[in-house]
């Protein structure tokens, strides 16, 4: 879907704007959505604003890559900036969400650590085999974040944020954040196993 939408847009970008400018400008939207996520502490309608600015960030984030490919300006600096800013954005959004107090802090920290570990093994895969084992691409990850904003909004809207189960009270967003690390662990393990098999194959070829 992005592939159809972006190239016409990328052609309209004036020539004095480089892809790296766009990456850095996209970070402003990350800051905005982090602020909105924090502000959900006071009014849950800010979830919608956070979803909107995350959507714009997703668009801008894909735009820089497309622009670099169209203009044949792919550079090492661009790749580095893209990956690093993306990770900082990931940490910042989760941190803002943690500060807002909507979810248990320890669950958010676990999601942060597993997410970083996942991208770390991904990078190792890139170093050793030359490609990443990444299951989902970045727009998909952002789509998950936007969906999560909407889910949180509707849970608040329909007063479903506090559930009671046999006298045991818990927040429904916490359950979402319990499922996420489990999902991440499955991703990490499956990625590591496939990478291990590939590395074994590489080693065998090298011996021959």
């Amino acid at each position: 879907m992005w592939a159809f939408l972006l190239p016409p847009l990328a052609k309209k970008v004036p020539s004095y704007i480089t892809p790296n400018h766009i990456s850095v400008a996209g970070f402003i939207f990350v800051l905005a959505s982090a602020f909105f996520l924090y502000a959900t502490k006071y009014n849950y309608f800010y979830y919608l604003a956070a979803a909107l600015s995350s959507f714009i960030y997703a668009m801008v984030d894909s735009l820089d890559g497309t622009l670099a490919r169209i203009r044949h300006q792919i550079s090492r600096r661009g790749v580095f900036l893209d990956y690093t800013l993306d990770k900082i954005a990931y940490l910042l959004l989760l941190f803002a969400f943690m500060l807002s107090g909507q979810v248990r802090a320890d669950l958010v920290v676990i999601v942060m650590i597993f997410g970083l570990f996942y991208s770390l093994t991904n990078m190792e895969s890139q170093v050793l085999t030359g490609r990443q084992f990444s299951v989902g691409n970045r727009p998909q990850g952002l789509a998950v974040a936007i969906t999560l904003c909407f889910v949180a909004f509707f849970l608040k809207f329909f007063r479903l944020d506090l559930l009671e189960f046999y006298g045991f009270k818990f927040r429904s967003l916490d359950t979402v954040f319990v499922i996420m690390p489990v999902f991440q662990v499955v991703l990490i393990l499956s990625g590591c196993i496939s990478l291990w098999k590939e590395l074994k194959k590489l080693d065998r070829e090298r011996k021959k």
Partner: peptide, 22 residues
């Protein structure tokens, strides 16, 4: 401790990127 965990992982992430790119 959590700040150290995240800082350490982020540092290794940058280090791995350095290996991939340079």
């Amino acid at each position: 401790v959590v700040a150290t965990m995240i800082g350490g992982l982020f540092y290794s992430f940058i280090s791995n990127q350095s290996q991939a790119l340079t």
